[in-house]
Amino acid sequence: MKEVISTTALTKIYGTLRAVDNLNLSIKEGEIFGFLGLNGAGKTTTIRMLLGLVKPSFGASYLRGKKISTNSSTDIWHQVGFVVETPYSYPELTVFENLDLIRRLRGIKDKNRINQISKVLRLEQYAAKKAGQLSRGNIQRLGLAKALLHQPNILLLDEPTTGLDPAGIIEIRRLLISLADKHRVTILISSHKLAEIAKIATNIGIIHHGRLIKTIGRTDLKKQLKKSLLVEGRDRKALKSILTRAGYEIYSPTTKSGPLQIRDKNAVAAPEKIATLLVNAGHPPTLLKVQQEDLETFFLRSIQKAEQEREIADV
């Protein structure tokens, strides 16, 4: 499959801060790449460099093999749609006029395209409303409409569902999946809504302090998501004591209530042994459940590991 979005040793330095550090990405046609990271990790800076808004300090970014910079040839932009952080529009112009402005800038001759995209994003009823009077969610919808107006085959989306209601989030999810599956649109999406990313991304990249610390496909991710056994009983303290004496390491979250977690592979594979142990000790469990970690936990675990490695490297 063709490589559509790529970066080579992409680096951006602001003073002493390495906002993006030696980033190497390769996103193929039709992929939905979930780009995850904490606030300030470098996600938005990366997208800005991919859009030619900001010059890299070192390295390069490419869209369809074309090197991107602040003075890039304009031809590539026919193919690229984007939402960068909050998508602001001209407040004195109506929704229709804002879209018309983008239509003209992008050289789209078909005026009907505005009505089409307004319908898809449920903006028709707001067509005559000034953008300055829109709600947060509709501002986001307008931003998405501007990104999709010209039917791009590359989408760079930075928090595209911020402010949308749950129905809106589902709509956008379905739309993005459809674009990728049916129209081979390549999508790079950064979001803090990890549950959403888990549902749509074919590949995930985690960036931390400007560095890509992990890249993983959906199939491999499922294998890497750890399983744990949740155990709950009437006397939490006694349960903990019994299991610890039996040699099981208890994962202790910060809360002092709720089920205990055992990550031991053997325990997860044979929970009935745990049940037997507790029953024989006179403390039968009220809950015994095998749980797979979600993307959120995997993400936090990856970040934690990266922080530990960073501390070791600093020492």
């Binding site: 859009l51 030619g52 602001y88 992008r106």
Partner: peptide, 15 residues
């Protein structure tokens, strides 16, 4: 100030 400059920068029309 209105943060609309982004819409003018990555478009097929030269800056």
């Amino acid at each position: 100030s209105d943060r609309t400059v982004v819409d003018l920068l990555a478009v097929p029309t030269p800056r």
